[in-house]
Design a protein around this nucleic acid. Structure first.
Length: 507
RNA sequence: GGCCCGUUCGUCUAGUGGUUAGGACGCAAGGUUUUCAUCCUUGAAACAGGAGUUCGAUUCUCCUACGGGCUACCA
């Protein structure tokens, strides 16, 4: 299998790429890289009514951010280009004609309205209308199987609209092979004669897909489960063209975190998590949807999370670099059942990745936030702050809330903490503490600890009585790193100032 | 309705014809931290149901239920 692995990700540019699409792209990417293969991006824009102009750019940007770029695609190594189906339009006609010639397809002149009427009619009688061997030659449907060649030619030259339908073989049991599901059995008689070529001169997905996969020498088709019902048609199409079929793998869907059904944008809005990798602005409505990137997720954490949704390495390892993923990935270990999406687990991954980063890296990422808050400081100081607070953070965006007191005096005091910790005697105690601090010549952690702890011990009042109000004075709430760290970081003067401020404000 | 796919703790999942059914997230308790968080320890928590095959089925087969997908001149 190590030779000539070529896979493709073939999205429709109808909007933002959602998590499920990203995962499909990721699995394709991992599979390609594992076997030193090629990852192709092909834009399937045969439906002009659903085309969205900024969607393709979004898809490319998203893959870029996820660090799973394509090797071949629009504007990149166009060895088998073009890679947009709309630009390959002229190509498909001859393949439709080939099928027509071979008797694998036929012209159909039925209008959408007529077909709708048939469907309604059947439904009213409790039956299901299927355009296939049941009725294609019964005379109620207008196609080249019942019309004479002259009639067909006449209609076509008269400019009558037609589609080309696949002529599904009758009375055959197909045994299909799926890399994740194994064998799938299906009777061809239950299949309908799908449209291959539309009356607007465009191929449908089915034709374009098979033609392009063949022409682009795709070896493995890894796609969403929603395509599984099309597998028999696609297999038959390869047979009709006498082409070698690629191997297929259908990925299960990503489901809602709660309730039933597949994950949608609405779930994200309702439960407060993004379903798109990047922020997306709907061209028509102007609606903006959140993105993982903008929400502060690291792309490698996001990818790591996605990789484990529907796949697992069979070991207990959960944290993977992209390289490790490409090594470990295996289609055989992709699970068959749908996976409910977990926003909580996603956060956990981000937290893990954040903890792994160095203080230097994190300090760099913190810089813009500091700027936003009109704070500037030297890098050594910022790195030290980061080292003290990062274990409390899930996102870099949490940093300011966790560390603002390192840069500016608290502006408010936590109400509950005040009520609980600030007693009548606290004010005078804090004043005494100020003089203890003032007396410390060299304001180091060691000295501060020795002197303050010594003073508390000598007063025989218990640490909490002093330390809690002190924390409230310096931080504004009962949270944060070690107090002696904070005091020496902000310095003796600021420490004294904050205690005095608190005495004034709280006593 | 028809066709297809699926079903192990709440969630993601590992697993085997005989296991104390394992891990992770989340949750709970305890410890560390005189704070908060981290961290550590512990705990609660699952084989959808029914037949069959078998000495023995969570594992194999069938049925049912449930979930999902498809059923367009959309992808």
């Amino acid at each position: 299998m190590s030779e000539n692995v070529r896979v493709r990700f073939a999205p429709s540019p109808t909007g933002a790429l959602h998590i499920g699409g990203v995962r499909t792209a990721l699995f394709n990417y991992l599979f390609a890289k594992k076997y030193n293969g090629t990852f192709v991006l092909r834009i399937e824009d045969t439906d002009q009514t659903r085309y969205v102009a900024n969607a393709e750019e979004y898809i490319v940007d998203a893959l870029e951010w996820c660090n799973i770029p394509f090797d071949e695609g629009p504007g990149k190594n166009e060895k088998f280009g073009p890679y947009r189906q709309s630009e390959r339009k002229d190509l498909y006609k001859k393949y439709a004609d080939e099928l027509l010639e071979k008797g694998w397809a036929y012209y159909a002149f039925d209008t959408s309205e007529e077909l709708d009427a048939h469907r309604k009619d059947h439904e009213a009688n409790g039956k299901t209308f299927i355009y296939n061997w049941h009725n294609r030659e019964k005379g109620r449907l207008v196609n080249s199987l019942v019309l004479s060649e002259e009639e067909v030619q006449q209609k076509i030259s008269a400019g009558e609209k037609y589609v080309v339908r696949f002529k599904t073989p009758q009375d055959e049991t197909l045994i299909l092979e799926d890399e994740v599901r194994g064998k799938i059995k299906i009777e061809t008689n239950t299949l309908d004669d799908k449209v291959l070529f539309k009356s607007d001169g465009m191929p449908t997905y089915h034709l374009a897909n098979i033609v392009d996969d063949h022409l682009m020498e795709i070896s493995h088709v890894i796609r969403g489960e929603e395509w599984l019902p099309s597998l028999p048609l696609h297999t038959l199409l390869y047979r009709a063209f006498e082409w070698e079929s690629p191997k297929f793998a259908h990925l299960s869907l990503i489901l809602k975190p709660v309730g039933k059904g597949k994950l949608s944008k609405r779930d994200g809005d309702k439960l407060g998590f993004p379903v798109f990798p990047l922020e997306y602005t709907n061209e028509k409505t102007g609606d903006v949807s959140r993105g993982y990137k903008e929400d502060g997720y690291f792309s490698d954490a996001f990818i790591n999370m996605l990789s484990l949704l529907g796949w697992n390495p069979g070991t207990e390892q959960e944290l993977f670099t992209l390289e490790e993923l490409t090594k470990a990935f295996d289609l055989a270990r992709v699970s068959k059942s749908g996976a409910k999406f977990s926003p909580d687990k996603t956060k956990w991954f981000n937290q893990q990745y954040l903890q792994q980063k160095t203080d230097e890296e994190l300090a760099m990422l913190f810089l813009p936030l500091l700027e936003e808050n009109n704070v500037s400081s030297d890098t050594v100081y910022i790195q030290k702050v980061v080292s003290l607070i990062k274990e409390r953070a899930v996102f870099v965006n949490d940093f300011w809330g966790l560390s603002s007191f390192f840069f500016e005096d608290p502006t408010a005091y936590d109400e509950k903490a005040f009520k609980k910790q600030w007693k009548e005697t606290t004010g005078s105690l804090m004043e005494e503490l100020v003089s203890v601090i003032e007396a410390i010549e060299d304001f180091s952690i060691e000295n501060a600890q020795t002197d303050i702890k010594g003073w508390i011990t000598s007063k025989e009042i218990g640490f909490g009585k002093v330390m809690q109000p002190l924390r409230l004075s310096l931080v504004g709430k009962l949270a944060g790193p070690d107090l002696f760290e904070i005091m020496t970081m902000i310095g003796k003067e600021a420490t004294i100032k904050r205690i005095k401020n608190a005495i004034t404000a709280l006593s």
